[in-house]
Design a protein around this nucleic acid. Sequence first.
RNA 1: GCGCGAUUAGCUCAGUUGGUAGAGCAGCUCGUUUACACCGAGAAGGUCGGGGGUUCAAGUCCCUCAUCGCGCACCA
Length: 903
Amino acid sequence: MSLPDKFLKPFDAQSIEDGLYAKWLASGLFNPDVCIEKGYTKPDAESFSIVLPPPNVTGTLHTGHAFMLAIEDIMVRYNRMQGKKTLWIPGTDHAAISTESVIVKQLSKEGTTKFKIGREEFLKRVNTFAQESHDTIVGQTKKMGASLDWSREAFTLDEQRHRAVVTAFKTMYDDGLIYRGDRIVNWDPKGQTTVSDDEVDREEETSKFYYFKYGPFVIGTARPETKFGDKYVVMHPDDARFSEYAHGQKIELEWINGPMTATVIKDTAIDMEFGTGVMTITPWHSAIDFEIAEKYNLDKEQIIDMYGKLLPIAGEFAGMKIEEARAKIVEKLDAKGLLVKIEDNYKHQKAISQRTKATIEPQIMKQWWIDVNKPIAKRDNLSLKELMLRAVREDGVAIIPDRFEKIYFNWIENLRDWNISRQIWYGHQIPVWYDKENNVHLPREQKFIFTRHGESQANLDKVYAGQADSPLTTLGKEQALDTAKKLHGKNISKIISSDLSRAYDTAQIIAKELGIDNIETWKELRNMDLGNTTGTPLPDNSTSSKFTKKTMIDIGIEYSDGETLQDLEKRAHEVIKKLQKSSSEGVILIVGHGQFTRILLSVLNGDKGNQILDNQRKITIDNLQIYEKTLFLNPTGENLTQDSDTLDTWFSSGLWTFSTLGWPENTNDLKIYHPTSILETGHDIIFFWVARMILMSTYLLGEIPFKTVYMHGMVLDKNGKKMSKSNPETAIDPLLTIEKYGADALRMAMIVGVGPGQDVTLSEDKIKAYSKFANKIWNATRFVLEQTNADDLQTKPVLDQEHAEYINQWNTLSTEITKEMDEFRYYLVSEKLYHFFWHTFADIVIEKCKSDMNDSARYTLRYLLHRQLITLHPFMPFITEEIWSSLYPDGDLLMITPWKSAE
RNA sequence: GCGCGAUUAGCUCAGUUGGUAGAGCAGCUCGUUUACACCGAGAAGGUCGGGGGUUCAAGUCCCUCAUCGCGCACCA
C-alpha cells in the first residue's frame, strides 16, 4: 500500500515530462555504447539504426516533424527494448536555398543586399541564424521524447560532412560521373540561381496564343518575346502539308526587326496535330528546342538575361521586362501585317520555382552535372540509374507502403542528369578550382602520418616518482630514434611539430635521422593550453622543461588549465582545417603530444563530444606507433580561383546515412550500423532524398543505405488541408499541444489508426481523447498501487479461473502485438493496447477484482499493469516511465526493460 | 495525356492468403460520490461509390464507370 501523493491528482503531463527527459539523458542510454557498457545490451547483439531526417535550420518544429518523431521514436524504443544495439542519429540540414533566402529577405528589409555586404559577412549572418534555428529545433525535438543519441549529432554543413562531400565529389569526378557542361537549366530569376527539375512546380495558366506569319508559314506561340533570334523553322518530316520544303532549305523572310534567313529543319519531335504543325525554335530558352538544336548542331542565342530582361538582340525592345515587351512586340508584328490571329483560351502549365514562386526561365549555363546514364566500371558497369533500380528490385530495399515502389521506378525511368550547381553562397562550395586557362583543378590526396613525442608514460612515471628528472631522457631519445626507423621508406618530406620542447625535440631527432630539413612548428598542436608557464617554449636543443603532473593526467579525467573538451574539439577542427591547407610532394609527418594527438585523431575519425573521450583512449600511439591518414587537400598553385557556386543541398543529404557514421573513414559505427535498418520519412521527399541516398550509397559504398523505407503521410487539419504556415487558423502547434495535453497524448493521436503512407487528420478532439487515456492509466495505477504492493508479484499464487483467463487474454494479445510491431503496424498495436487497457483491464478486470481482492486478484492486477506498461512505453514513453519509477523506485529504467518480459 | 491511390456508421478510419461488417470520436438513453465525471452501462446507426464478372461464398479478386486526392510529363 504505497501510494505516492502525485497519484491523488489527475495526471499532469507537463509537470513530469522535462524531468523524465533529463533523467533519460543523464542515464546516457540513448547511446548504444552506454547500453553495452552497462550490460543492458549484449555486445554481439543485432544492430538497429535509423538516421533522423534532418530538419531544415530555417525555423521551428511543425506537426510534420512531430509526426515523424513519434513514429521513429516508437521504432527505436521498441527495438532498444528488444535488446538490439539501437542507434538513432540526430542532425539538421543546412537547406541551402531556403536558409539563404531567409537572410536575403532580412537584408532586403534593412535596405541592403548580400552582394553589398560580401560573401564572408553574409555567411556569418546565415550561420548565426542557422545556429539559433538549430537550438530551437533541438529543444523541441526533446519535448517530443525522442530518444536520439545526441552525442552523435551531425549537421549537413559541418566539417566532418564537408570531408564526406569533398570525397564524394572527387570520387565521382574521377569516375567521370561529374562533368561540367553548357546545358539548359531551370533558372529562377528571383532566387538568382538554378534549381533542379524536382524543385520546379507546375501551375496551370490561361494565356493568349498568337499566330504569326513567318515567311510562307504560320507559327503559333505563347511567348512572342523569345522569338527575335528564331532562325530555324521546324516541321514533321511526314507532314504532307510541308512536303515541298526540304530539310536544310533556306528561306528569306521578313521578321520582327527586319529581313532574315530562316533554315528549314525536319524533325519528328513536332506534333503535327498541335497548332499549325510548324514552329520556330529558341534553343536558349526551351528544353525541347535545345535538344533539337543539339541534334542538328544549330546556333543558340540568348534572348533574355538573368533578370528577365530582353538583350540587345531585341533591338528597340532591349532592356524591357518580358511582360512589358510582349504586348509591344505583338503590336509591332500586327503593324507589319505579320499577326494572323490571337486565341484567348490557351491553357498550359507554367513552371514555377518551388522555393521562391518565381516563373522559371530556361537558360543555357555552364553547370556541374551528375551523369546518371554512364556505366560505372567498379559497379558492374551499371549506371547510377541502374544502381538505383537494382537497389529496390534486387538488393533488398523495401518501400512501405509498396505502391511507392512504383512511383519510385516511374521517376527513375524518366530521370535526367542531375544539376548540382547552385548560384548561392550558403552551402558546400564546389570543390573545384580554375586557373587562368580555365583548367579544372580538384582536391588532391595528401598523406599524413601522426605520431607523438618520444616519451612513454612509463618514462614519465619515473619522472613523477623522482627517479628521473628530465622528461626527454635517454630513453625518450631512443624511442624517438625507434620511431624514425619505422618512418624510413615512408617518403616523409615535411614535418609539422608542436612548438613545445618534448615534441619539438623528437621532431628534430627524427628529422636528423631521415635527413629532412623542413620542419614547421604549430602552437595549435600543443597538448593543452599550457601557455608560457608549464612548457618550455622553443627553441633549439632544450631537453628539459617545466611541467606539472596535472598537465599529464589523462585528458579523460581532468582538463588542464581550463581548456574544456569543447575547446579541445574546436582546436582539433582548427588544426584539421590548417592541415588541409598544408601540402607537400611527399608525406607530412605530424609530431604532437600524446593526449592532443589522440584527440585530433579521434576527431579526424569523425567522433564528436563525449565520443572523443571514449575513443581517443582506444587510439594506441603511446608506444610511438605511427598512424597514417589521408586527407583531400585543396589544390595549390598560382592564380587558382574556386568555383563560386555551391552544391545542391541534396548532394550532402544524399550521403546522410553514412556521413553521419563517420564516412569516408572506415569507422566502427559504419561497420556496425550501415546499412541502416529503416529510413522513415514523408512521402513528399521520396525523389529529393530517398532516391539520392540510394544513388550515393550504392555508388560510393557499394551497398544499400537502408533495408526498409517507411513512408508516412502528410499532417492534415480537420478540414483535410495540409497543415502549414499558410493556413494558420487550423494549424496545430506541436509545442502548445504538448503543454496542454502532453507529448504522450500528441504521439498517440498521430499514431492510432494511421497506417503507413496515410495522411493524418489531426484534430484537437483526438489529442484530447488520448490525454484522457493517459489519465485513465494514471488512475488505474492509483487503484492498483492502493490495493497491492510489489511483493504481490514475487510469488505467483494459484490463480482463480477468471483471473487466469484475463492473463491468458493478455498473453495472446501480447504475442499478436509483437508480430505486428515487427510489421510496422503501429496504428493497430496502439489501438489494441488502448482498447485492452481501457475496456478489458479497467472496465472488467479491475471492476471484478474489487468485489474479491484476494491474492489471485492482486497478482493479476500487478501482472497486467506491469506488462502493459512495457508494451505501451514506445508509444507513451513519459507516463509509462513515470509510473514504472513508482512501481519500482530502485529498479532499472523502463526504456531498457526487455520487451520479452511483456509476454 | 501517363501513372498511383482513395471511396466502409454523422466524422476519422480498421478490416493481412475471399467465409454472414469493426473501432475511436460525436450524438442518444440510463446510471454513478471513494481508481478515474478526463467515469460506467446500454441502445441506435452502414444494401462497404455505381454497374458487371469470377466463386458454394466478394468490402476483400477481375473488368468498367463516376467522384475526390496525389505524382510525373507536358507541346511551340
